[in-house]
Design a protein around this nucleic acid. Structure first.
Lengths: 246, 246
DNA sequence: AAGCCGCAATTAACTCATACAAATCGGTAG
DNA sequence: CTACCGATTTGTATGAGTTAATTGCGGCTT
C-alpha cells in the first residue's frame, strides 16, 4: 500500500557510501544491538514489518540478518521469530562487531577487557615474532616506526603506522589464529591513543618503548621481546587507565 | 532448461539434518574453501550458474555467500564476481570456521597454531579466574571434574565435561572477548584427546593435573593457577606433539 | 607516433516483489 | 493427557529490473 505515494522509512541513514544495502542494514542493526538498543532475548519485529520500516526489501533485510546471525548476534527460527542471542554467543573478536561496538562510545568494560586481552596476547606474540621474523618483517616494522616518528600520533598516517607496527609483529608470529586477533588488538591500540590525546595536553612520547621493542625483535631475543612488549603495553595502560576508571 | 526432467545437482550432501538450505550450502562451501578446494584468489562461478549446479535457488545461495562473507572467507563485488579472500582475512577464531576446518582432517599447522594459542591464553585465563571466580563457577568446575573422572575421556560425556571445565574457567575470567576464544580452545582440547586416544593404548590419566589446577582456583591463587594451567597444557602438548610432528 | 584520458557497453552482483513451502507453537477436541 | 489442526513466521523459489565496476574503444594530448 502507498508505496508510490512516498516512503515512510528513513529514520536510519541507510543508503550510504560504498556499502550495499544489506551491509548497511546489518551495520545499523549491529550497532543498535551492541549499543543495547536491542537487548539479548529481545525478539525483533517480523521480517515483513521490519523490512518495511527500514524501507528495504525482504531480500535485503534477510541477507542482513544472515550476516548478524553468522557473527552470533541473532538467531532466527520459524514461528518463534528472530531474537538477539545471549552475550556469550556474540563473537566479540569479529572485526565488524568490534567496529560496530566502537561506533558509539564503547563501554568501559569492553575497553578494559580488550586491554587485558592485549596484555595477554601481545607479549607472547612479540616473543614468537622475535624467533620467527623475516628480514622483510623487520623492514616493514622499521618503516612503520619511521613513519610513526615522522608524523606523530596526532595524525592519521602516524596512527596508521602504529597499527601497522603492531600488526606486522602479529604476522611475524606466524600463527593464523593469533593473527585473527589483530582487529581486537588494533581496537585497543586505537583507543589508547584516543584516550591519550584526550587526557594530556603533552602526551607521553611513544617512540622510546617502541624502539626498544623493535631492537629486541631485531636481536631475535624472545624473552627480551616479551619483556619489552609487556612494558610497552603497561605504559599504554598507565596512560589510559585513569581515564576509564577515575 | 530441463528443470522438470530431474535435478542435475547433488554432488554435495546438502539437504541434511536440522540445518536450513542456506546453512548447508554455507557449510559445504566453507569446508571446501578451508580444505583448499577453492584457493584464495579463486573466483567462484556466477550466482545463477553455481546455484543451479548446487540445486538450490539463488536466494538460498546468496544467503550462504553472505554468511561466508561475514566470516571473511569470500568477498563479492558486481562485475568482478565472488572470490575467495586472502587467508589473513579469514576469521580463524570463528566457531563455524573452526568446525569446518576440522570437518576434514585439519592441517597440522592449524593444530599447532591452536595449541600455541592455548598455551598463551589459558594460563592467563586461569590466573584471572582464580581472582574472579564465583562460588557457582567453582561448583560447575567441580561437577565437570567429577563427570570427567566418572566417565573418562573415552566417552562422549567425559569429553564434554572436559570441555565444560575449560569453558567455565574462561567464563570465570570475566572477560567477554577472551570468552569468545572458547571455541578455539575447545578445538585444541578436542584434538588433544583425539590424538591421545590414537597414540597410546593406555592414555595418561588427565585427572591429577586437572585436580591440581582446580585446587589453585579454589584457593584463589592466581600465580599458582597460571603455573598449574601451564603444566596442564604442557602435558597435553607432550601427548600430542609427537603425533603431529614425528 | 606513442601514450593517456574519458566514455560507453558489458557483465556480474544487487535489489525488489510475489508466490509458495516448511516448520513450529498454541489451542482444542477426542 | 494425547493427538491433531490451524495460524503465524521464517525459509525457498523465481523472474524482472537496477546498480556498479571493468573492459575496450575512440579521441585527445604530448
Amino acid at each position: 500500500m502507498g508505496r508510490d505515494s512516498g516512503r515512510e522509512d528513513i529514520n536510519l541513514p541507510l543508503a550510504s557510501a560504498g556499502r550495499r544495502i544489506h551491509g548497511s542494514v546489518a551495520r545499523a542493526l549491529g550497532v543498535a544491538i551492541l549499543a543495547g538498543r536491542h537487548a539479548p532475548g529481545d525478539v525483533l519485529p517480523g521480517e515483513i514489518e521490519f523490512a518495511e520500516q527500514l524501507g528495504v526489501s525482504r531480500t535485503a533485510y534477510r541477507e542482513a540478518i544472515r550476516i548478524l546471525s553468522a557473527k552470533g548476534l541473532v538467531e532466527s527460527r520459524p514461528k518463534t521469530g528472530t531474537r538477539v542471542s545471549a552475550r556469550k554467543r556474540w563473537n566479540l573478536l569479529d572485526p565488524d562487531i568490534l567496529a560496530w561496538a566502537f561506533e558509539g562510545e564503547p563501554s568501559e568494560a569492553l575497553i578494559r577487557d580488550l586491554f587485558e586481552l592485549r596484555m595477554i596476547v601481545e607479549p607472547a606474540a612479540a616473543a614468537l615474532a622475535a624467533e620467527r621474523r623475516s628480514i622483510q618483517d623487520l623492514a616493514r616494522m622499521g618503516h612503520a616506526l619511521d613513519e610513526m616518528a615522522r608524523h606523530g600520533l596526532a595524525t592519521e598516517v602516524g596512527r596508521a603506522a602504529d597499527q601497522t607496527f603492531h600488526n606486522v609483529i602479529l604476522e611475524a608470529a606466524r600463527n593464523g589464529p593469533l593473527l585473527s586477533l589483530s582487529s581486537s588488538i588494533a581496537a585497543a591500540v586505537t583507543w589508547t591513543t584516543i584516550f591519550k590525546q584526550r587526557g594530556h595536553a603533552q602526551p607521553r612520547d611513544p617512540m622510546p618503548d617502541h624502539r626498544a621493542l623493535y631492537d629486541t625483535i631485531v636481536a631475535g631475543d624472545p624473552e627480551a621481546a616479551r619483556a619489552a612488549m609487556t612494558e610497552l603495553v603497561r605504559l599504554a595502560l598507565a596512560d589510559t587507565e585513569p581515564l576509564i576508571a577515575p
